[in-house]
Amino acid sequence: MSPANAALVRVTQVPGVRGSLLISATDGLVVAERLMDGIDGRAVAALAASLVQRLSRAAIGAGMRIPTFVHLRGNEGSVLAAPGQNDLVLVALTGLDANLGLARLEMLDAVGRLN
């Protein structure tokens, strides 16, 4: 199993995670994915990449470096994103019942191993 797929497996094993992807931050393309049926990986990748880029610009505007973790919470679930090196971002989609703390730790650890 490739390091990328191993990272996705770890993240998707967290309760409440519906799927995870490794995407390219600059063009929003899917590098690897592990998603539940019915989730459009390309849409997730494009939207998450765009959001992370926007937030990175806001952070840089505030005199900070690019974010290490992003959590967008909707009233029916969340998008989690952990930007890593080499333009890669590990993204996860969760339901309301997800263990977000565990998902965050797994994602940070996984993206750290990819760097």
Binding site: A58, H71, R73, G77, V79
Partner: peptide, 29 residues
């Protein structure tokens, strides 16, 4: 950012965006 968040949660079936938490090496937003 707000428009992007709205679009993302709507298109991914996550409802209405509520909050965005951002961790950076220098501070939390």
């Amino acid at each position: 950012v707000s428009k992007e968040a709205s679009r993302t949660t709507r298109l991914l079936g996550l409802g209405t965006w509520q909050t965005i938490a951002v961790e950076s090496p220098e501070a939390n937003l």
